Simulated scan of single mutants.
Amino acid sequence: MTAIAPAASTTTAVAHRPGKKMNIALWTVQILLGLFLIVASAAPKLFGQHDAVEAFETIGWGVWFRYFTGLVELAGGIGLLVPRLTGPAAVGLSITMVCAALTQAFLLGAPALMFFPLILGVVFVWIAWQRRDSITAARELLSR
Rank of each mutant, 00 (worst) to 15 (best):
residue 4 I to Y: 04
residue 4 I to T: 15
residue 5 A to F: 09
residue 5 A to S: 12
residue 8 A to R: 11
residue 10 T to A: 14
residue 12 T to M: 09
residue 13 A to R: 13
residue 13 A to S: 12
residue 15 A to W: 00
residue 17 R to G: 09
residue 20 K to G: 10
residue 25 A to K: 01
residue 27 W to M: 07
residue 28 T to W: 03
residue 28 T to Y: 00
residue 29 V to T: 12
residue 33 L to S: 08
residue 33 L to N: 08
residue 36 F to P: 00
residue 36 F to L: 12
residue 36 F to R: 01
residue 37 L to M: 11
residue 38 I to H: 02
residue 41 S to I: 10
residue 43 A to K: 03
residue 44 P to W: 02
residue 46 L to H: 01
residue 48 G to Q: 07
residue 50 H to Q: 14
residue 51 D to C: 04
residue 52 A to S: 15
residue 52 A to V: 08
residue 55 A to R: 12
residue 59 I to P: 06
residue 59 I to C: 05
residue 62 G to M: 03
residue 63 V to R: 08
residue 63 V to D: 12
residue 64 W to M: 12
residue 65 F to G: 06
residue 65 F to D: 05
residue 72 V to A: 07
residue 72 V to I: 14
residue 75 A to Y: 04
residue 76 G to M: 06
residue 77 G to R: 07
residue 78 I to N: 06
residue 79 G to W: 09
residue 79 G to F: 07
residue 80 L to F: 10
residue 81 L to F: 05
residue 81 L to P: 05
residue 82 V to I: 14
residue 87 G to Q: 08
residue 87 G to L: 08
residue 90 A to K: 08
residue 92 G to H: 07
residue 94 S to E: 01
residue 97 M to F: 09
residue 99 C to A: 15
residue 100 A to H: 02
residue 101 A to L: 08
residue 104 Q to W: 00
residue 105 A to I: 13
residue 106 F to N: 13
residue 107 L to S: 15
residue 107 L to K: 15
residue 108 L to R: 09
residue 110 A to G: 03
residue 112 A to D: 13
residue 112 A to G: 11
residue 114 M to K: 07
residue 114 M to W: 03
residue 115 F to M: 10
residue 118 L to H: 04
residue 119 I to D: 02
residue 121 G to C: 11
residue 122 V to G: 08
residue 123 V to D: 04
residue 127 I to R: 00
residue 129 W to C: 09
residue 131 R to W: 08
residue 132 R to E: 10
residue 134 S to M: 03
residue 134 S to W: 08
residue 136 T to F: 07
residue 136 T to Y: 04
residue 136 T to E: 12
residue 138 A to P: 05
residue 139 R to T: 12
residue 139 R to I: 14
residue 140 E to I: 06
residue 141 L to R: 13
residue 141 L to P: 00
residue 141 L to H: 09
residue 143 S to G: 06
residue 143 S to F: 02
residue 144 R to K: 15
